[in-house]
Design a protein around this nucleic acid. Structure first.
Lengths: 239, 239
DNA sequence: AAGTGGTCTAGACCACACC
DNA sequence: GTGTGGTCTAGACCACTTC
């Protein structure tokens, strides 16, 4: 056709198509790790779409660790793609119900007290902070599923003292009543201690999966929890 | 001023500011869990910004599990906010180096063979698929850090047979040479078996953290790996 | 049928990094 | 200074869902 340029252009009209094409070129090693790829404007021309569309496709790939982007420098294929796994951290009741089991929980112990030094310093709390110390056992179909050892800063969540924690677990109460907290989470493996083993009805020393969670709201510590999962527990996701 | 409306409007000019304001309203329980929030157009008016800006702020919160969005229905605060943790899964060498230690690895065993039924069925491979079976020990400052048991489908990655895996670990070779694979990953805790304990120089039965990874490229299985981490290993992230 | 979010466009300006 | 990505805007149309 007269007037038509002879540059190859595609017609990719959604950011997903653009993303798929980018990924294809990386997967098929058309663009090698560490190499710069064309800039947004050029890709937009090639793909016959707006720059914003290319931007969205590339931005998400950068977030996923597939691309490295820098202003002025440009965009390159990540040399050492760090895979990012996304894990859903549901409340325990949902976790159990998703397995098709019936959930219930039992409070083993509940005390108003001050926290030991280790917990206090981790939560950056002063010496006499009043806390609620809870030990709870969660069941799946009447089999011990998880043993929870939790410290709650009652200054941040005073209402929890009036809550009936035998009906709604502390876990669930906090999620519903202190929304949008931040925090950190750590996974590890440990040999069960005598107390933990007894609660979970396993042999002392059996390997248990541990999740430790610390939760903050506006830079103030809300709660620290150590969750001990019965043997057989697996945490899995797609990557 | 004459002509000025008396609707309260804010001046939030970046999607981050909008997001922060939304989060504030949820955190301070101005908008309750399960409740609908105003639609994008209305928020854009209130915040004095474009609808696209509001859209980006809300979209990211929905991805994070804080909001539930549906066309026609509208946007509501999630009733049971499922927290999503993002985990970086680096290659082992980087993981060790990030801890400030010196990395090296040693191949314990390397064989061309066919896989046992369990592995084959997990990877959905036919009976006589030729595989490479590798057992590798990874060190941090000459202390055993992780024991890796890996099966590789050599049909998908024939070049790996020519690679010098004593210089670059299989892990790293695969990441660099088969980019953009998908897969699944699972975390668990186990008591170490005799073989694993011997390699990691620990007592048989000591709890070890297990990562199992299966990797696919275009629906074809590339590799299955079982990674056994020495006691003390923690996987952590912010949430 | 109608209302909401999902996305695309074309253009503009800004912020950062490298010079 | 200069070039790249980062973001915002105003408007438009589409897709899904509920009615």
């Amino acid at each position: 056709m007269p007037g038509e340029t002879h540059l190859k252009t595609l017609n990719l009209q959604s950011w997903r198509q653009v993303q798929a094409e980018i990924m294809r070129r990386i997967r098929e090693r058309i663009w090698l790790p560490g190499e710069f790829i064309p800039k947004e404007v050029d890709l937009a021309n090639e793909f016959n779409c707006a720059r914003a569309t290319v931007n969205r496709a590339l931005r998400e790939l950068a977030e996923a660790g597939v691309l490295d982007r820098k202003r002025k420098a440009g965009t390159r294929v990540a040399s050492h793609p760090v895979r990012k796994a996304k894990l859903d951290i549901p409340i325990t009741r949902h976790e159990v119900e998703r397995l098709g089991a019936t959930y219930r929980h039992k409070i083993i112990d509940s005390k108003r007290t001050t926290a030991p030094l280790l917990i206090r310093s981790h939560l950056k709390l002063p010496e006499n902070t009043s806390m609620l110390h809870l030990r709870t056992l969660h069941f799946a179909d009447d089999k011990p599923f998880m043993y929870e050892n939790r410290w709650i800063n009652v200054n941040v969540a005073p209402d929890i003292l009036e809550a009936d924690l035998t009906k709604v677990s502390a876990n669930e109460w906090l999620v519903n009543n202190i929304p949008l907290s931040t925090g950190d989470i750590a996974f590890s493996a440990e040999n069960s201690a005598a107390e933990e083993a007894k609660c979970l009805e396993i042999t002392t020393g059996e390997a248990i999966f541990i999740i430790e969670r610390t939760t903050w709201s506006n830079d103030e510590a809300i709660t620290y929890a150590r969750l001990c999962y019965a043997p057989g527990f697996r945490l899995s996701t797609i990557i």
